[in-house]
Write a protein that binds this DNA or RNA. Structure first.
Length: 421
RNA sequence: CGGGGCGUGGCGUAACGGCUAACGCACUUGGUUUGGGACCAAGGGACUCCGGGUUCGAAUCCCGGCGCCCCGACCA
């Protein structure tokens, strides 16, 4: 992609109204645009990141047998009345000119449960799980922290269905593992803790995945022995205690909830009377689990975690581009060489953002740091005279001078590291 | 939803109740530059958030609304 053609612009000034790091850097870098509080447009750069995160999630959820579907965002009042959740305040409601009311989905149990009931009649069809990556709407009383808590946001929700509790438990653990694989791939695993949280009214605990960050809204207590945490919301009489080993010496931290998993059991299958016939021809209620994760929140979390004074430092796995090719100066020779390299990289299917703008070196470097692509290749009169380029990693100081013929090899090597990571 | 702060070109700001609302960045044109947010020159771009009021006169004062940010409450 030629940067001269890229839709979106970087902003030099610090934005007065945004205090959160992710909002500041994503807006300034031209990744997102704010339409109103908690509602964002994803510009080309930001959408590339979001898509990459979503694809990582897809791959890992597919791996545990989840089948991707897409349910409507616009939902009928009837089903929400059945579960008694029509009146919950996070529900956004829309009304037509003729007075008919609809809900905008903030979760999809009210759609997926009747859907499953319609197609599944026999124990032979179990277990199964379906998921979607879709836009959710929540009437947050206060949207905040950039894309970390929006009123409209991207969400992956997976729902699993089972004939018995053991099977649900097994899948629940599988989902847990899949979640950690996802965190590993977006580079936040070492800061993410499985956290015991409120189970609502139908089970003792649920589990959240909490990623340490001062931008987080949750307070958790970490047990370093068990490598798990407990959410402050379920701490009784001010005395946090590890739910696994009863250790009372826990570390208090702020964290962002980057995922949650719930054993819904029969809460919704009962409401919608979703029964199947077992081996003995007897009707039984199906059991359910649900597993949520917000790609857009994940994106915000990564920005909160990986940045410096100059901008974002994207992990390779979700960077909008792998290479930022920058040419400096206005000498014909350097431009020609940069164009040649750009074409070569494209031929190799390397994701490259090419800063072909007629801007000063300072502007280009500043923008490059702000956007935060992992590898920067500088082509200038200076490098061309030595038949080389300068390669700098965004997450390291210093750079290396590399012969032009070696570029593709180095980048391919760099990209492979991503796949291993 | 309670408390606080703030609304002036795209962004950041300025302007005593008083001339045609000023400046920097960004943008357009021409020229000079080109290794860390260059320079010169000439331009375009604003119903000062909206509505009402006070006043000879309102960006400025008053009332109401809306919006944005922060704190809190809330958060399947």
């Amino acid at each position: 992609m030629r940067q001269s053609q890229l839709f979106g612009k970087t902003i030099k000034e610090v934005l007065k109204d945004e205090t959160s790091i992710n909002a500041q850097l994503l807006l300034r870098g031209g990744f997102v645009d704010k339409l109103m509080a908690g509602v964002y447009t994803y510009l080309p750069l930001g959408l590339r990141v979001l898509n990459k995160i979503e694809n990582i999630i897809r791959e890992e959820i597919n791996e545990i047998g989840g089948q991707e579907i897409l349910m409507p965002a616009l939902q009928n009042k009837k089903d929400w009345k059945i579960t008694g959740r029509w009146e919950i305040d996070v529900m956004m409601k829309v009304k037509t000119f003729f007075g008919k009311e609809y809900g905008l989905g903030w979760t999809h149990e009210e759609v997926v449960t009747p859907l499953a009931k319609k197609y599944i009649k026999s124990y032979k069809d179990f277990p199964f799980s379906v998921y979607q990556i879709q836009t959710k709407f929540r009437s947050e009383k206060r949207a905040k922290s950039g894309i970390l808590r929006g009123r409209e946001f991207s969400m992956k929700d997976l729902y699993s269905f089972h004939t018995n509790e053991e099977d649900l438990d097994k899948y629940y653990d599988l989902a847990k593992e899949a979640y950690f694989k996802i965190f590993e791939r977006v580079n936040i695993k070492n800061k993410t803790y499985l956290t015991y949280a409120s189970g609502g009214d139908f089970s003792k605990y649920s589990h959240e995945f909490q990623t340490l960050s001062s931008a987080g809204e949750d307070t958790i207590y970490i047990c370093e022995k068990c490598n798990i945490a407990i959410n402050k919301e379920i701490v009784e009489n001010n005395q946090p205690e590890c739910p696994q080993c009863q250790n009372k010496n826990l570390k208090e931290e702020k964290a962002i909830e980057t995922g949650n998993i719930f054993k819904l059991k029969t809460k919704f299958t009962e409401a919608f009377d979703f029964k199947f016939l077992d081996e003995n021809g007897k009707e039984q209620l199906a059991l359910m689990g649900c597993y949520g994760m917000g790609p857009s929140r994940l994106m915000g979390t990564v920005v909160e975690l990986f940045n410096d004074q100059n901008g974002i430092i994207w992990p390779k796995s979700i960077a909008p581009y792998q290479v930022h090719l920058v040419h400096l100066g206005n000498k014909e020779e350097a431009i020609k060489e940069a164009e040649k390299i750009y074409n070569a990289l494209q031929k190799e299917k390397i994701e490259v953002l090419y800063d072909d703008r007629k801007e000063s070196a300072g502007v280009k470097f500043k923008d490059s740091d702000l956007i935060g692509v992992p590898l920067r290749i500088v082509v200038s009169e200076k490098t061309v005279s030595k038949n080389s380029v300068e390669i700098k990693r965004r997450n390291e100081e210093g750079f290396e001078i590399v012969g032009i013929d070696k570029i593709v090899g180095i980048i391919n090597c760099h990209c492979e590291e991503t796949e291993r990571a």
